[in-house]
């Protein structure tokens, strides 16, 4: 099984996300990660979906998604063709003695420390899945209280954009 990233432009209507997600459930496809947000055109949103599967499955996912009326455009991106980023907020157990140590690790990962309490440090990291995993692994031994992690979002490298057909 490989990972594929689909970049999908959809009409910014109520209910579109449930059509997209519902299709995955109904057809037995798995969403690995998903993120949604607005685009420069306020009428259009971009959904970035990461799926795990084989070529056959990704082709089916893409063809089935195309049939949804509100799906305007789809592109399947390969790893080397795109910049892909996710964000994780992590609340790490901490006390005054190890605070410095944790902040040092955060610095190496260019993570931001966004909150501190007497017993915790909250850090924010953005990057590839591997980077986020590596950071979490480094701070795991201190004890992780809580994690909030977004789905990956992605853009194609170079000058290409996901344009609407005129």
């Amino acid at each position: 099984m490989e990972k594929y990233t689909l970049s999908v432009l959809v009409e910014n209507h109520a209910g579109v996300l449930s059509r997209v997600v519902g299709l995955f459930t109904r057809r037995g496809f798995n969403i690995h990660q998903l993120s949604v947000g607005p685009t420069v055109d306020e009428n259009i949103s971009r959904i970035t979906i990461e799926v795990k599967g084989d070529v056959y499955m990704v082709e089916q996912v893409s063809k089935q998604l195309s049939k949804i009326m509100e799906v305007i455009k789809i592109k399947t991106l390969k790893d080397q063709e795109m910049v892909k980023r996710g964000l994780v907020l992590v609340k790490i157990k901490s006390h005054p003695k190890n605070r410095g140590e944790i902040i040092e690790i955060a610095n190496v990962f260019r993570a931001n420390v966004v909150d501190i309490s007497p017993t915790t440090i909250t850090a924010e990291v953005t990057g590839s899945d591997q980077k986020l995993d590596a950071f979490l692994k480094m701070v795991e031994s201190y004890g992780i209280e809580e994690i909030a992690r977004t789905g990956m979002t992605a853009l194609e490298r170079g000058a290409n954009t996901l344009k609407l057909d005129k």
């Binding site: 056959y56 089916q60 063809k63 049939k67």
Partner: peptide
């Protein structure tokens, strides 16, 4: 006419 039918059940 439906591209999703092609390759869905058989290649």
């Amino acid at each position: 006419i439906d591209p999703a039918e092609i390759g869905k059940n058989m290649q």
